[in-house]
Design a protein around this nucleic acid. Structure first.
Lengths: 216, 216
DNA sequence: GATTAAAGTGTACATTGCACACATTTAACA
DNA sequence: TGTTAAATGTGTGCAATGTACACTTTAATC
């Protein structure tokens, strides 16, 4: 390989310093995750796109896995935002119960919507090595500052206030609701339900939420 | 590398032919999947353990992914067997409803038990590229000849017969039940619920099944 | 202006999946 | 039975990847 080739290998950069390589890498990694999920994130390609030598990466991320985790947090945040958008669509009402139910449904719907719109990112949100504390890590929050998990919690609290959920059943309720929707998402994305088209998943997804509502 | 080294590299084999390399590779791959899941299956290591040159693999599997799929089917089969064992534990009764409920619970419990006992295999059962038809592929069945999906279907049919499930709700019921349990499994294995210990997951898992029973 | 920490470069290495050409064995057919 | 063809293994080789280690350039600080 001669010098000319090298210049082609990574895009030329006027300055020796990059400016904001951390951000640039993260963004490139997210694009790759969008198509192909975690497996599609390849360190060298990230640096290539950033116009930087492969090892520059290690000044900003301990290793590939650290980069994955960063993407994972960002993905969780994007999910939170999608859920928030769904919540914002809810038409106002004075009926506490109605509001609570709509809220829970919005969380589930937003979750599923995101899973289908951004399968790659969704896959990374919860399937990458994390500390459990990440469910409350600010970096994984949306615009309201709440993580997906916390947004779900709020909806459930509202159900309790509205009298539709006893204190006893409130316990672990996040887990039950989350499990159902998460499992469905996994099955239609990577699992054996891949064949279902969006029309079907839309309907079945709403029915699934019905089940959760009844079952909680 | 000299000849002596080579002999160490892969275990010496008296015969040029291996005998049953296909099976041997599959078994080695399953061991690797046990710890580490799909990512831990590395073609070259598999052939190494089989005492065979790397490329011998391609006489039996088109590529790495084909091997993964084979392991996936075997994993599904192992899951089916675990579920069947749980079903066999059910004490006999003449009460149709009771029997049906116990059956559904057994399917869920077996599913979760397997997920925790063999996380690596479980991860491969449904998260690897498959045709949708695999849910009914005999290779993924247990001793009764039924796949996990079909075992679940039987339980639901019993619920219908017992009058605990209307025909209308029977539709997609597999998906709802499966989603809940599958999601829970994912969350406690690769997800943010990893911190829960087995005592907790046991209890919460049963409560989750309660929810499904109510919600279906 | 010299020093120092931060950020980027270069070279190197073990590993991996896989392609292609060749060797050995077994089975089938004359 | 001998020849031939199909299976099954081997060897060599290649492009990629993640990352270790040593060096260089730059910006910030005293």
């Amino acid at each position: 390989m001669n010098i000319a080739d090298k210049k082609i290998t990574h895009a030329k950069r006027a300055t020796y310093r990059h400016g904001d390589l951390h951000r640039t890498m993260l963004e490139a990694a997210m694009q790759m995750a969008r198509k192909g999920g975690a497996g599609a994130i390849v360190l060298r390609e990230v640096t290539r796109q950033a116009g930087v030598a492969p090892n520059a990466a290690y000044r900003h991320f301990a290793d590939r896995n650290a980069l994955l985790q960063a993407v994972s947090l960002a993905a969780q945040s994007a999910l939170a935002i999608e859920i928030e958008e769904e919540i914002n669509k809810i038409s106002k009402t004075n009926n506490l119960l109605e509001a609570a139910r709509a809220r829970l449904r919005a969380v589930g719907t937003g979750y599923l919507r995101f899973a289908q719109a951004e399968p790659g990112l969704f896959g990374m949100a919860f399937s990458v090595p994390h500390d459990l504390s990440d469910a409350e890590n600010p970096a994984s929050a949306g615009e309201t500052g709440l993580t997906p998990f916390q947004l779900l919690g709020v909806a459930l609290d509202m159900l309790v206030e509205a009298g539709a959920l006893t204190q006893e059943r409130r316990l672990f309720a996040e887990i039950f609701a989350w499990s159902a929707v998460h499992g469905f998402a996994m099955l239609i994305l990577e699992g054996p339900l891949r064949a279902l088209d969006k029309t079907q998943t839309e309907v079945i997804g709403q029915r699934l939420i019905d089940m959760v509502e009844r079952g909680l």
